[in-house]
Simulated scan of single mutants.
Amino acid sequence: MSTTEESPTAAQAGASATRAFRTSRQHGTAGEVTPERVSTVVTALLDGVHRTIRTHQVTYPEYVAAKRWLIEVGESGEWPLLLDVFVEHEVEEVSAQHQQGSKGSILGPYHLPGAVRLPSVCTLPMRADEPGTPLVLAGQVRDTTGKALPGAELDIWHADDAGYYSGFAPHVPDGNLRGVVVADDDGHFEISTIQPAPYQIPTDGPTGTLIERAGWHPWRPAHLHLIVRSPGYRPITTQLYFTGGDWLDSDVAKATKPELVLDPRPQPDGRRRAEYDFVLEPA
C-alpha cells in the first residue's frame, strides 16, 4: 500500500478507532465481574509479565523504554489497534470453544455503527469510479437446524482497492463500502462490491515502532468483515478471505482460518462471484 499525501496517519486512524470503540455496543459490557475473577485474571497476567522479566533478564533501560512506549500508545489512541491486532484473536478462540454455527473471527478496530440499510440484492455504497475487481458475495443465513432466517442482517464493511477504510482515511467518503444488508424471506442475500486489497496496519505510530523493532511485518490479507445477526440468535462476527491471497498464511493479526477462505469464480459479466452461507445458533 503506497503512502500518499492524503493517506491516514496512525494518529488519525488511532483516534478514529478509539471513538468508534467508545460508541460501539457490539460486544456489550463485562457485566458483573466478581473481585475474585478480577484478582484471578490480573494476578495471572502480572505473573506472566514477572516471569518474562526474570526469564529474559529485562534491564532497567528496557523497562523504561517499554514504559515510554506504553505512554505513547495511550497518547496516540492506538490501544484499540494494538489489542485488536495482537490480543483479540486469542479471546475469540476461547469464545469459539463453546459456540456452534459458522466460524467467527476478530472484529478489528474498523467497524462503525449506523451503516445504511440495504435490501437483500444490493450494491454497497461506493464512489462512481471505485477502483477494483467487481465482486459478488451471495448465500443464505440459516439456523443450526437448517431453517432459513428471514430478515437476518449482514453488517458488512471492508477496505477499498488501496487498503483504506472509510471513516479512517480522510480521502475515502464516509460510508464507502459499508452497509447493513437485510436478507430476504428465505434468508438469501446477494451483495455486489469490489474485492478489497491487503493492507498494512498504520506503521508511523507506536504499534508500528514495535513491529519494526521486532522485525515483524505489518500486513493483513485482503478480507471482508461481517457481523451476521437475527433476533433470538447469537450474532457471528467474522472475516472472509480469498484463496491465494498475499499474507493469508502470515496474517499479523493471526485471524485467518481455513473455513473462512473464499474462492471467487469469474463470471461472464467480468465480476467474480463467491458463495458463503452463515449458520446461527440460538442465543
Rank of each mutant, 00 (worst) to 15 (best):
M1W: 10
S2D: 07
E6A: 01
Q12G: 11
Q12A: 10
G14Q: 02
S16D: 07
A17S: 10
A17Y: 00
T18K: 10
R22A: 15
T23V: 09
R25C: 07
Q26G: 05
H27Y: 05
T29R: 09
A30S: 04
E32V: 12
E32G: 03
S39P: 08
S39C: 05
T40G: 02
V42A: 07
L45V: 11
G48F: 04
G48D: 03
R51N: 08
T52D: 10
T52Y: 11
T55A: 15
H56E: 06
Q57C: 09
T59V: 10
P61C: 02
E62L: 08
A65C: 00
A66N: 00
R68K: 13
V73Q: 02
L83D: 07
L83I: 10
V87I: 14
E88Q: 15
V91Y: 07
E93P: 05
A96L: 02
S105H: 03
G108P: 06
G108L: 03
Y110E: 03
L112C: 00
G114N: 08
G114A: 02
A115W: 03
V116L: 12
R117C: 00
L118F: 00
A128P: 03
D129W: 13
E130D: 02
E130C: 08
E130I: 05
P131Y: 07
P134R: 15
P134I: 11
V136Y: 04
L137I: 15
A138D: 12
G139K: 11
Q140L: 01
V141M: 00
V141Y: 04
R142L: 00
R142W: 01
T145S: 13
L149N: 07
P150C: 04
P150T: 06
G151S: 13
G151I: 11
E153F: 02
H158S: 01
G163T: 04
Y164C: 07
Y165R: 05
Y165M: 06
H171N: 08
V172N: 10
V172H: 06
D174Y: 06
N176P: 04
G179P: 06
V180N: 05
V181P: 09
V181F: 02
A183P: 10
D184G: 10
D184V: 11
D186T: 05
D186M: 02
S192Y: 15
S192E: 12
P196Y: 03
A197G: 02
P198R: 14
Q200L: 13
Q200D: 14
T203I: 14
L210C: 15
L210M: 15
I211G: 12
E212N: 05
R213H: 06
R213M: 12
A214R: 14
W216L: 15
P221I: 05
A222L: 07
A222K: 06
H225D: 09
Y233D: 13
Y233C: 13
P235I: 12
P235R: 07
I236N: 10
I236A: 02
D246G: 07
D246T: 14
S250D: 04
D251E: 03
P258T: 08
E259I: 08
L260G: 00
L260H: 04
L260V: 01
R265K: 15
R271Q: 06
R272P: 03
A274I: 01
E275Q: 12
E275A: 12
Y276P: 00
D277V: 01
F278H: 01
V279S: 00
P282F: 11
